Amino acid sequence: MASDRDELAQRLLDAQVEFTLGQLTDEDEFRTVAEQEIDSFLTDSGTIPLESVMPRQLIKDVVYKYAVQFPVEGAIPELVGEVAARLYNHDVNSQTSLHDVVDDRQFDELATSIAEMPAAQRALEQVLESPSTVDTVVDLVQRSVANNFGSKAARRLARPIEKVTRYGAGFVLDSAREDPEVMLLDTLRDFWRGNADRDLSGFKGTITDDDIEDFVVIGFEFFRTFRNTPYFRTLLDEGVDEVFDTYGATPIADVLEDLGIERADLMEEAMRFGPPVLAHSERARLPRDHHAPPPRTVLRLTGVCGGRRRLREEVVCTLPAP
């Protein structure tokens, strides 16, 4: 009797596996399953606050692991450098101009927005008002005189050069301070007019592939030390706290909606990744010699007698042949 129950249980399990495989590997059936699961998730998550299923400290621990503890070694910076070099050397750069990426109207709107930003205006005003700006101009002019006329002439003319340069630089900077927004906008527009039709590869003289590699190395070296500072960890804490202060008590479905993630997006990604991934699974490639039972089939495996789980006699299922 026990062997008969074991055989029946095995056949029921085989049928259930076959049925589930049918749901997962047939695209139409998988779509139905995905719709049901997504609808169920959105319904249930409409009443579940974010922080009740994702505690704040748990998320902080994950953030710390990947932002602070995770080793930034070996393959990661190497791969980033190789990707950057590949993009830098791609033929599309010689076939694409700045004009192809941004048209005149878009650039003018962008330049105007930048020039009108209070932060940009404050930064420009600080540069124009800083004594270091005049000092830098004086130093550049003196170096230019030394390079073109010799160090002896530069030393002899140092005082008059400094006096004239400071007067001229002060005059120019005073004029620029009257309307820094217009000066910045004119500078951006002059750059655009002079470079809009250049292909992107034309800028390789300014930034070489060696420069790209150096930027990657410097960036990783900086981040390696920066991420271990109390300052960086404080920023991580505050960033996570802000998310949970804003959305911690909000139902998950509402959080997704605020992020612009809708049911159609979830279905699209389920159908994008589900069928091709499942089609390559070992279980999906098992031979199937019979049809799966219809979705309405019920497998009753919940009966309990004497503390032992057993099959109810009223099991309803289409079984594979023994």
Rank of each mutant, 00 (worst) to 15 (best):
R227P: 00
F222E: 13
F70D: 06
V240P: 00
M117Y: 09
L236A: 11
D211W: 08
V68M: 00
P131A: 11
Q10P: 00
G248D: 07
R300I: 05
G202W: 01
E29P: 00
L110C: 10
T206W: 08
K163Q: 06
N195W: 04
R11L: 15
F215R: 08
T297Q: 09
S132R: 14
A279K: 01
T136A: 03
D241Y: 04
L124M: 03
G306H: 12
E116Q: 12
V240Q: 00
L188Q: 02
N148M: 01
V141T: 10
G303M: 04
H291S: 12
L58C: 11
F70E: 15
V102F: 15
T229L: 12
L87V: 13
P180D: 01
E35Q: 05
S144I: 10
M1I: 13
R86Q: 11
D254K: 15
D44F: 13
T133Q: 08
A85M: 02
G307T: 09
L124E: 02
R296I: 12
E257H: 01
V182Y: 15
Q57M: 02
Q36A: 08
Y88M: 04
A270K: 02
A34M: 04
M267V: 09
R143W: 06
R227M: 02
D104K: 09
L311E: 01
E18N: 05
M267C: 06
K163H: 12
S94M: 06
L278Y: 09
L8I: 14
P287A: 09
R11S: 11
A153W: 02
F203D: 07
V316A: 10
E7P: 04
D179Q: 00
K65Q: 12
T20Y: 10
